[in-house]
Amino acid sequence: MSWMAWTLPTAVFFIVIASILVGMTVWEIRSPCIDRKGFLPISTTRGDRLFIGLLSSAFFHLYIVGFTTISIWLALLLSIAWLISVMRWG
């Protein structure tokens, strides 16, 4: 595994992503979701909302890192809040 040059933050990152995917799979098996329309302009499934939330969070992080001096931890907190609200009301 040493050739992959693991670091603790990236390991945590991938573990979180993997657990989200496993969690979503279990959730889908327990209660399958249906398309619905929230505040997003398109009707989405649960997986769509997760994808939208994660991708927009990635770009938000890039913006914060590249063009501001705001701490990345704040970006992370805001992204988590954003992800939860997209999943719940999106």
Partner: peptide, 10 residues
């Protein structure tokens, strides 16, 4: 891809 992510922070 995971390896690239690891490289990008080091």
């Amino acid at each position: 891809l995971m390896t690239v992510v690891n490289y990008s922070v080091q």
